[in-house]
Design a protein around this nucleic acid. Structure first.
Lengths: 242, 242
DNA sequence: AGGACCAAATTGGTCAGACCAAATATAGGG
DNA sequence: CCCTATATTTGGTCTGACCAATTTGGTCCT
């Protein structure tokens, strides 16, 4: 999987990969644009555009006189996806951390949404929860209503910060997860409990409870995903469905 | 405050500003590179580098045939800073959302850190909490030990996802807050309560409690900041300290 | 009139070669 | 050995050109 269609993106991809693989120490001089142009047999303009992307990612810092490599964890959130993709299969620890993080953000969203919802919005949310309960026989069928619910809550809570973070996270992870095509097995009681608790929280407009429900649900989801990944690790039959 | 030293950055700044101010509808055609080059009296290369940055920010999507403007909340986290800077003073709602978000992430970090800490690391954390208590007479003096504590917890919890998000958030917000130079008044009991609860959670290695302490503390901090901003709004004497 | 199809203009992607200013490396003098 | 002046490297920008993909506009057929 090289990367994109344009040369500059390909160069950026290759260089990003090298930096992510720690082939340069933080603070090291980065090869000069002219050298890179020669190495990739491309024009300096194309190289410059690639470097511009790396700079946006916070991986390098350019300056007249030379570019330097920056510390990895001073980088931007946008490197998470590439980082996952590095060795073809996602790092289980990283996936776990992602779900943990996404969980607290979803919980916060639920809390704000339930607390701030207007009567009509409460009705809307209740309806979505019912949808979730009805369609929730298999993992695939559960996804659309689940996503709808999250989306509705996100819209109601109207927290741009969380939304932007979630955008990035989803863009980075969800694609990877789908590409590997694994379906975590959620324990049966988990979803019922979520639905029930969400309903109560909506009826009483109790954001705190909704938050807790989300948190618990993501916790169980995390465990299920962890198992699924371990399973994958045993049987490395990663088929790309596309 | 124009922006940077290079022309391409200046162009990127100007265009980013226009998009953030909603001067284009999502899906609109973006001016062609040649037009932009003429408008900014720059070379097309410089314009291309600027557009490359906008693309990384998720603000536009380029394609042979023409670039198009993307939806604002499909953008990257990195637009938060510019968004805050738009009118010289930060949007109180956005600041509130930031603190709320940062709060839950800090709480998650505290939980993981306390739960995962080795005996030595527990001792280290306890020491930092003591520092926090000692040096905590004024807002300024409190900052270094506070930051140290957060940093230590972040290092122990070792959650790259949270770390990257926090990097971005801090890079975007902290600068702005300092630039405006306001000091929220934390209620006196708040810090003591935080210190006390953190100590207990460390002694019993109770991550859940540490998380709750963080959450509560950020909640109070949020209110204090909210007041400070309202105060600023009344007396708009925004002096840039630099 | 409406829709399918084809040619021309527009646009992004890339290349080559050149110049400048800032930063670095090098050599020379104290 | 340190400090300074010079030469070189390097990033930032410009000009002008070519290609391929997309858009656009018009034409033709139904």
């Amino acid at each position: 999987m090289p990367s994109s269609n344009t040369i500059s993106h390909e160069i950026a991809y290759a260089l990003r990969d090298e930096i992510l693989r720690q082939r340069y120490q933080s603070g090291d001089r980065f090869p000069s644009e002219r050298d890179l142009a020669a190495r990739f047999d491309a024009s300096r303009g194309a190289v410059r555009e690639a470097l511009s992307q790396l700079e946006q990612l916070g991986l390098i810092r350019t300056q007249p006189g030379g570019a330097r490599v920056q510390s990895l964890n001073a980088a931007s959130l946008a490197i998470l996806g590439p980082l996952l993709e590095l060795d073809g299969h996602p790092d289980p620890l990283l996936v776990d951390q992602f779900l943990q993080t996404f969980g607290v953000l979803a919980a916060l969203t639920a809390k704000s949404a339930v607390n701030a919802a207007s009567p009509e919005q409460l009705i809307q949310l209740k309806k979505l929860v019912v949808d979730l309960k009805d369609q929730a026989n298999d993992y695939e069928g559960m996804q659309p209503p689940w996503r709808e619910l999250l989306e509705a809550m996100s819209a109601i809570s109207d927290n741009l910060v969380v939304r932007l973070i979630s955008n990035d996270l989803k863009a980075q992870f969800v694609g990877q997860m789908l590409k590997l095509g694994f379906r975590p097995d959620l324990k049966k009681g988990s979803r019922d409990r979520l639905v029930t608790t969400l309903r109560v929280s909506l009826n009483e407009q109790d954001g705190e409870r909704a938050s807790q429900a989300m948190q618990d649900h993501f916790e169980e989801f995390r465990e299920a995903v962890g198992e699924a990944i371990r399973f994958k690790a045993d049987k490395p039959s990663n088929r790309v469905v596309n």
